[in-house]
Amino acid sequence: MSAPRELPIATNGDVVVVRQQTRSLAAEIGLSLVDQTKIVTAASELARNALVHAGGGRVLIEVLEGGRRPGLRLVFTDEGPGIPDIEQALTEGWSTAGGLGLGLSGSRRLVDEFDLVSAPGEGTRVTVTKWAR
C-alpha cells in the first residue's frame, strides 16, 4: 500500500497535480470509473477553494485499508480566514468569491463522507472519503 502523501496547494498548477495524484490512487484502489471521476472532481473543487479563499493550503491524500472495502481519504487544510457560518456555506448556491457556490455543497454530494471544521480566523479543514463499492 502507498504511504499518505501531502501536497501543497499554492498555484493553479498544484490544483492539477492534486487531481492527477487523486486519480492515480483512486484507480489503484479499484474505484469505479464514475467514482474516480467524482472524487477527482471533488478534489479539484476543494483544492481551488483553498487556493481562492485562503490563498493556498495543503492536502493529505491517504489510502484507507483494513476495512471491508478500501477507501480514499483527502484532507484539505488551510490557514485562511475560516468560515463564519458553516450551514450557510454548505447551502446550495452560496458563494463568497464570485463562484457558482457549488464548491462545498457540490463536493459533498460527490463523496461518501464529508466533514468540515472551520472557525473565523482559524482556517478550514475539509475531510472527504470515497469507498470502493
Binding site: 471521476t37 467524482k38 457549488l102 460527490l110
Partner: peptide, 10 residues
Amino acid sequence: AVAITLVELG
C-alpha cells in the same frame, strides 16, 4: 462519467 458527475455536482 463526466456527465454523471456534473449532474451530481449540480
